[in-house]
Amino acid sequence: MENNKSGMTLFVKTSSRLVAVLGLIFGMHIILHGHLAPGGGFAGGVIIALSFVLLILAFGKDAALSKLSLKLASNLENVGALLFLIIGLLGFSGGAFFLNVLVKGSPFRLFSAGTIPLNNVVIGLKVGVGLFVIFLTLVILEKSKKEQ
């Protein structure tokens, strides 16, 4: 990230470095509190993806790709979708597809509501990585168009 040649000016880099971390944490907060407060896997995933997009905008494509390569990102996306399906399939152990088989706990606690927080986490993974891949693809396409 200390590469000064690519990306925007020092001001943008410094401030976006702070904001990106905050965005990441805020996204995780939204995902983990999906069953208690407004928001959830999708909204939190979008926020996480945006914090990565911010890094791309400030530091250039390569800096973000060194943290998360395109191949790993697309694999993670598939894993997210598969895990969601597997959580649904877990319900068969209790008798029905998507049955909430885990211990529900007491309401309004962070660790409660059985499989719903798990679903939120995998949706967050899928959506966050998915949006990141879409953005990266657009960036790479734009770059290859310029080179031609």
Binding site: N75, N78, V79, A81, L82, L85, G88, L89, F97
Partner: peptide, 18 residues
Amino acid sequence: IPLFVIIPLLSAFLISLL
């Protein structure tokens, strides 16, 4: 009945991943 959704969905992402 849910198998009609589960089987193709599982196949789609398994093929994409592996």
